[in-house]
Design a protein around this nucleic acid. Sequence first.
DNA 1: GGTTGAACTGAACAGCCGTTCAGTTCAACC
DNA 2: GGTTGAACTGAACGGCTGTTCAGTTCAACC
Lengths: 195, 195
Amino acid sequence: MARKTGSHSDITGPKVRAAAQKLFARYGYAAVSMRQIAGEVGVQAGALYNYTPDKQSLLFDMMKAHMEELLAAWEAEPKGEGPLTRLEAFARFHVRFHLDRPEAVFIAYMELRNLEPGNFEVIEALRKRYESELEAILRDGQEAGVFSLADSKLTTLAVIAMLTGVTTWYRDEGRLSRDRVVGIYWNMVRKAVGA
Amino acid sequence: MARKTGSHSDITGPKVRAAAQKLFARYGYAAVSMRQIAGEVGVQAGALYNYTPDKQSLLFDMMKAHMEELLAAWEAEPKGEGPLTRLEAFARFHVRFHLDRPEAVFIAYMELRNLEPGNFEVIEALRKRYESELEAILRDGQEAGVFSLADSKLTTLAVIAMLTGVTTWYRDEGRLSRDRVVGIYWNMVRKAVGA
DNA sequence: GGTTGAACTGAACAGCCGTTCAGTTCAACC
DNA sequence: GGTTGAACTGAACGGCTGTTCAGTTCAACC
């Protein structure tokens, strides 16, 4: 029988994940100990094992959730018609989504090598599925004569690298507003694909 | 009196740096132990301390050397006249330089957070000096009416992110030759800045 | 061929690692 | 108010960490 109050698992569980995300993003997975995470949450290290089977799962679950959220959010995004409109939707969506989750993004790009082989494959597959969304748009636009690309695969990776790079420097208190940054990135992408 | 043969320090020293670079790039600084590095070199862990005062210096010296090599190489690069020519020189140089040193580049971008504060500042300053080289070109081109930029600072970071991204996917055995890749990236940069 | 000293070994140091688990706490229920 | 069980503590496990250092090796020199 589930208790309503007095039960902390639905509070501590998210706290554990939040603490792990914060610390992994700041210091890196390998440099963060379970005791540090526990300290951030306010419990002893042993208590963490009520919420995760091990440290690796903490990383993997967080990365998997991030990638699935990314794919689901893009699927739910209104995309409009035609390659140019869809590319604009993608560019704006990508920058906004990444600006909203700087920690998760940082971890997703930095901690791939700390995943055990089986876990790595899962995340890698999700990442490729996302990349193929952009590549499909670029190929469609290329065939329709809307874009002018030397190589759609290379362009896909170059565009994603450029857009994702926003997280390395953007700060909310900064000189440029979010909307302005999103608009500038979209403009650069548009020009880069020759549209 | 320095011995000519029989002395291994001029062999082991570079070996240590090479092993550290290889392992840091593959598994990350925090995940690599001094015993692993020693094993790669073929000595015991204690012997490493003939070549570095500590593990942190191994990382810092390698990153500092990389950044200084980057700046020196760019300084030595023939740049030509005018913003467009200089931008082309920069783009081609950047991609080529980074393709030649995938491990050092990877470490320089991934291990910043594992630098002690004082060391971090040094590397950060070198990185900013390099970025300002590109920004100067972009501002000159903007003022000369050759480029069309929404924001020179943002464009600087976006261009560098795009160009550096090449190291995440390029493989020598791949579909596209180095020269072809360099040319495609330059073309995307050129279009992105509106030239 | 005896001496020197750079290079290296191998063991030890204190301390932290991820993980386990018997025992304690205490709100929620009967 | 006694019982239950989820949540958590605190100590322990073996093993690994970066670093130190007395002792060994051995090529190069006098």
